[in-house]
Nucleic acid binder design. Structure first.
Lengths: 242, 242
DNA sequence: TTATTATTTGTACGTTTGTATAAATAATGT
DNA sequence: ACATTATTTATACAAACGTACAAATAATAA
């Protein structure tokens, strides 16, 4: 599809910043360090296809076609399929983790010697993800959908653990400090519920719209605020009751 | 792998009740209505493999081997792959839906003219699923894991909608009655969060154990109680705050 | 200039995929 | 007894899969 690259007419391709601004690739060693750019293009294509069709549903050939490259270029840059998959997850995981760590340090600095408010912790963990997923960038939107798909699958949990568990434990420890009356096991349970809800919101399955009967997609900003309110109350209930 | 079927030694196969107690099938028309039994066996095998490897990760050949049948027998009984998948989901969806409807009617009868307590509604919706998934039956355990995998995927949401949305709407309507101060959109959001948490608990990914540092798997009964407490408080916060 | 290195292309291999066809077999209906 | 029906086996097929090899090409290094 879309093989009319011969005439440079005013198509979407020329108006929007695409992932392949250079046109069809020519063989030969590229100038300077163009490899990084090609890798990004492959990662973007893979990200979208893995999000749409899942790990097994998206083939290396699909990725190559979407990136405008030959099949072998994928393997050349990323090795076997599973390595490509891990690279897709890893790329934005690093960014997301940094945002969350910064938000946590910020909250710690503001709280001083006192415990951080639960609402602040929930906000700090969830906000970077939901904001990234709903701020227009299709890359982040695809990534969020992919994370949702991964959440309850064996391969997915293994990769998520590798990239996200350290920071998750930091937040859980801080939640325990803020909820001295709550059992630690229950706090982990609440944290898991929070993550599940966050991923559900960003997966854009259309189910909430269907269940509420509205045709228009819901406002992610509003979903975010509701999530914070809802889960903050949930956490507090773990400390007070029982 | 495991191709030493020549000698009938004391292996797990001979000790455990497998899905194929009748031994290898022989061609020819079976006595009476044995077809239903074969279909169940195929559904059990497909359920397990779809849960473990996902829709694209599990092949029809895998299912046939697991059920102890030839490849074509799967197509003979269920048609194309997607029909088999739908049949897997549908089988227990009917049971689950009945349990939930019964629980809802029960709660309505007990509440009389009053609104049903939010906690009762949360309990009624979640209990059949978590109890089925954790009551020892590997079929239900596989089914629950499969549902978790489906939750945030396009194919999955479509199938889930077809089988579960009607009852979900009933519960949401009742939740709105019990939360007169809450916005209907927020209630749907809370309901989605509740379902996501429920599926996460039953998917048995091992992440909560990893995050809490314990090696032993958590008690599902306890997770269930925590879920109800947590989400009931969340719903109530939607009505009181803002 | 010449040799080397990085990257893309084109092609190929063996396996696995979903699905289909044809024959064989045994219970059932008449 | 005989034709019919339901089901399993065996085999086949075209397509798609992940991966690999060899050649071509262009930038860089010597």
């Amino acid at each position: 599809m879309n093989d009319d690259t011969s005439h440079a007419s005013l198509t979407l391709e020329t108006l929007l910043p695409t992932d392949a601004p250079d046109g069809p690739r020519k063989p030969g060693r590229p100038k300077g360090n163009q490899s990084a750019q090609t890798r990004e293009r492959i990662l973007n294509a893979a990200e979208q296809l893995f999000a749409d069709r899942g790990y097994d549903g998206a083939s290396i050939r699909d990725v190559a076609a979407e990136a405008g490259l030959q099949v072998h270029s994928i393997g050349y840059h990323f090795g076997p399929k599973e390595s490509l998959f891990d690279a897709v997850v890893a790329r934005r995981a690093e960014i997301m983790t940094r945002l969350r760590r910064d938000a946590l340090e910020d909250a710690r600095a503001k709280a001083g010697a006192q415990a951080i408010a639960v609402e602040v912790l929930v906000h700090a963990y969830v906000e970077p993800f939901i904001k990234s997923a709903s701020h227009g960038d299709p890359g982040w939107r695809n990534y969020a959908a992919l994370m949702g798909r991964l959440a309850n699958s064996p391969l997915g949990t293994e990769i998520i653990a590798r990239h996200y568990d350290v920071t998750a434990r930091d937040y859980i420890a801080e939640l325990n400090r803020s909820l001295p009356g709550a059992d630690a096991l229950d706090v982990v349970e609440g944290f898991s519920a929070m993550v599940a809800a966050m991923l559900g919101i960003c997966s854009a399955t259309g189910r909430p719209e269907r269940l509420s009967g509205r045709a228009t997609p819901r406002d992610p900003e509003r979903s975010f605020e509701t999530l914070v309110r809802f889960h903050t109350a949930g956490f507090l209930a773990l400390a007070t009751t029982q």
